[in-house]
Design a protein around this nucleic acid. Structure first.
Lengths: 98, 98
DNA sequence: CGCGAATATAGCGTCAACGCTATGATCTGG
DNA sequence: CCAGATCATAGCGTTGACGCTATATTCGCG
């Protein structure tokens, strides 16, 4: 096999329908959060299993999350952040009026 | 009745058990996000119903969320932010090593 | 080459967020 | 005092994140 995952499902959603853009943004967010957590974990030279233990979940959950396999929930993000000695901050930032 | 909601369930969770702190933090986050969204909405002089329409949901959903009744998911936050011309930003911020 | 550790997938039960409709509770203006 | 509008709750079906175990795949390392 060439790649490990292809996320075809994501790409297949047409961008025209209402809700599609938001769903896409959320998926992108999930992806970036996964990358961020992975970086923090590797910076500590932790295995997924170790992080999982510290965050109160299993290795497979960590893997799924880091890969962006699902859009994580706030409690999960909080636990991961806590395990990594980090703070989770979520904000709704008003855009400058166009 | 004195108050409209009491959230007794939340307060009743003991703080000692593993996972309790994170759950609490998530709940607090939900609360603050609810307040933030409510402020943005009121700043625009919108009713819950109007925001709901703009965000692709019903008035009851908006009410539930603004009250902190549930811990919102990222897609929902994204839609609300979008409707309010705001950006949702979520970050895992490493704490300065103690 | 194996061998073991680390990571990625798969399948599945559970539970809470979500979305809906309907209805109560408040508050206002006429 | 009533009518209309706004917001809060309730009940409920659906769906997807979560957590688990098990297994495949990858990657060094001796």
């Amino acid at each position: 096999m060439a790649e490990r995952a292809d996320w075809a499902g994501l790409r297949e959603r047409r961008m025209g329908e209402p809700g599609a853009r938001e769903a896409y943004q959320a998926a992108r967010l999930a992806f970036e959060l996964g990358r961020a957590v992975r970086e923090l974990r590797q910076r500590r030279a932790w295995s997924q299993a170790e992080l999982a233990r510290a965050a109160g979940m299993t290795q497979s959950a960590v893997a799924r999350f880091e890969a962006g396999g699902t859009i994580p929930t706030l409690p999960v993000l909080e636990r991961l952040a806590e395990a990594l000695d980090a703070d989770l901050d979520v904000r709704v930032v008003p855009r400058p009026a166009a």
